[in-house]
Structures are given as C-alpha cells and as structure tokens.
Amino acid sequence: MAIIETKELTKHYILGRKKIVVGLEKVNLEINQGEIFGILGPNGSGKTTCLKLLLGILFPTSGEAYIMGRPPHDIEMKQHVGFLPENPYYYDYLTGPELLWFYAGLFGLDIDTAKKRIEYLLELVELHTAKRLHLRHYSKGMLERIGLAASLINDPEILILDEPTTGLDPIGCRDTRNLLLKLKEQGKTILLSSHFLSEVERVCDRIAIFHRGYLLATGTLDGLNKQYQAENLEDLFVKTICKFDNQQNVTTGETT
C-alpha cells in the first residue's frame, strides 16, 4: 500500500504577467511503506518542488498529494514525518542540543524521551563533542549532520530528505548511506532527492527520474535499465533525459 501518493500533482510558477514556468506537471507517484525511494533529476527538474508540495510548504496548482492518506497540511501526519531540507539553515544563535530541544518541543516529546533521544542523535551524527558550539560556528558538513539529527528527533515513520549528502565529505556520505540502510531495516520509509547517481544507486529500492517538471520514468533500477536498454543508472539517466528533450524539440520545432 502506498504511504506517499501524488495524483496529477501540478505546480506552475507565475513569473511576471504572462510567463508561466512548469515546476511540476501532472506527477503521479506511489511510494510504498518501508522502501527507499529516490527522486533523481538535473537542477531545476522539480525534485524539491515535489517534496515541498508533499510537505505543504508550497500549494499545488492542481492535483493532490497524500502522506499516510492525509493531505500535506495535516498536523497529525506531520507528527510521523521527518524532513531535511537542501542546504539546511538553522537558528545560528542556538547550540545543537538547543535546536533539538526546540524541535522536540514542537513534536510534543516529554522531557525524559526528548533527553534520551537528543543524546542518542548527537552520538549518532557524531556531534556530541560540539554540544556548546553555536550553529553559526558549524561547518557545512556539521550543519548537514545536525539537520539529519533534527529530522530524526521524532523517530519518524517517514523520512523526507532533500539532497542529504550535499556538503558531506566521502566518509560523511558513507555514514549517511549506512544510516539510511539501518533506518530501512527498522521499517522506515525514506524519500530522498539527489543528483548524486552513485548514492541513489546504492541505497534506493526504486527511483523516479524528473526533468523540467515532468516525471519521465519510475520503477526499480533493474526494471528501468531493461526498459531503456541502459547499462547503469548514469546511462539510464542520460537516455531518459535526452529522449524527453528530443521529443520536446520535435514538438516545438527546435533543433539541437
């Protein structure tokens, strides 16, 4: 059964008086419980727009989105979701533990649970030695790690991660990958967007490829490789995108 679902989800941005930019166009997605689902696409392909629509940060032009059968603005649903934005920015006047206490409070965790959870997460992301450091003094990698800890503060059933390995060094990337696999073993559902193909290839059960706001392909990596006669994910990625661009150029009469 799909735990995350979109139906004809569309987002158009209006720029100026008449110009309309397609952020997302009639996207139908079904993400099953317990799987790691990767959204792939070049910059500006609609990955982040899709995640923001699912979380109620943006409002759809048309179509519907559901998490656990509930609409994006539903408070009860958000109780079970963790989110890590791309290049996360946090309150730089807070320390790591203070940030986690703030979010624990918003999730309504009691003091004992929050305390244990914060200790555990700081150990997990290896920031327990930087407890007194304000976030303004954090490196990019440290911010990414405290962001990951913040997204896990409520022990979420569903984890939505936007470019989770951006800014991390190779060891940080490996640790994040291992953590995602561990969370999957615990039965969590993970939806992540990335343009790091190798990361996606290693952890995702199924993928979706976006380009210019359109969902071009979705399925398991093996299934899609066979369908598009691709050798690997990179080959598949290039083929689907080139095929789409060629079709668009034929429609609009452009030549490449």
Partner: peptide, 14 residues
C-alpha cells in the same frame, strides 16, 4: 530569508 521556516512548517505546527 534564512529558510528556517522550511524546517518549522514541516513540524506539527499550524
């Protein structure tokens, strides 16, 4: 501006 609102509005907060 700092985009901290993304993390805030995705928490169970109206």
């Amino acid at each position: 501006e700092r985009r901290t609102i993304y993390t805030l509005l995705t928490k169970p907060i109206r």
